[in-house]
Computed example of a mutant assay.
Amino acid sequence: MPETVISLGYSQDNIHPKEHHMLLLYTYPRGFGQFSLSPFCVKAAAFLQLSGLNWSRRDFDDPRKMPQAKLPVLHTDERLIPDSNNIRRYLENEGAIFDPDLSDMQRAQSHALTRMAEEHLYFNLVLDRWGNDAVWPTIRDRYFANVPALLRRPVANGLRRKLMQGLATHGIARFSDKDRLARVEQDLQAIQSCLWQSPFLMGNRPTSADLSVGPMLAAIRSTPVQTPLSRRVAADAQLSDYIARLEDTVQLP
Rank of each mutant, 00 (worst) to 15 (best):
M1E: 12
P2W: 09
V5M: 09
V5D: 06
S7G: 06
Y10W: 15
Y10T: 13
S11M: 15
H16G: 06
H21Y: 04
M22Y: 07
M22K: 13
L25T: 03
T27R: 12
Y28H: 05
F32A: 11
F35M: 08
F35N: 08
S38A: 08
S38K: 02
A44T: 05
A44H: 04
A45R: 08
F47W: 04
S51Q: 04
N54L: 12
N54I: 08
S56T: 15
D61V: 03
D61Q: 08
D61K: 01
D62Y: 04
P63Y: 05
R64T: 10
R64Q: 10
M66R: 08
M66P: 08
P67C: 09
A69E: 14
P72M: 07
P72N: 07
E78V: 11
E78A: 15
R79D: 07
R79M: 09
I81H: 05
P82C: 08
D83P: 10
D83V: 09
D83M: 07
S84N: 06
S84A: 06
N85D: 15
N86T: 11
R89F: 14
R89C: 15
R89P: 11
Y90P: 13
Y90I: 12
E94D: 13
F98V: 03
F98I: 04
D99W: 04
D101G: 11
L102I: 10
Q109E: 14
S110K: 08
R115Y: 14
E119N: 11
F123D: 10
L125S: 12
V126R: 06
N132Y: 15
N132L: 11
N132Q: 14
A134W: 06
V135Q: 11
R140F: 02
D141Q: 05
A145L: 00
N146C: 03
V147S: 00
V147L: 00
P148V: 02
L150G: 15
L151E: 02
P154H: 00
V155N: 00
A156Q: 07
G158N: 13
K162A: 07
L163V: 11
M164L: 12
Q165S: 13
Q165F: 06
A168D: 13
T169I: 13
G171F: 01
G171V: 01
I172D: 03
A173Q: 02
K178M: 14
R183H: 12
V184I: 10
E185R: 13
E185M: 13
D187T: 13
Q192C: 10
Q192L: 06
S193G: 13
W196Q: 00
P199V: 03
F200C: 04
L201N: 02
R205Y: 12
R205F: 15
R205G: 14
A209F: 01
D210A: 01
L211C: 01
V213A: 08
V213L: 03
G214A: 03
P215E: 03
M216S: 06
A218T: 03
V225I: 10
V225T: 07
P228K: 05
P228G: 05
P228R: 02
L229D: 02
R231S: 14
A235F: 13
A235I: 08
L239K: 00
D241V: 03
L246I: 04
E247P: 11
E247H: 06
D248N: 07
V250P: 05
V250E: 05
L252I: 05
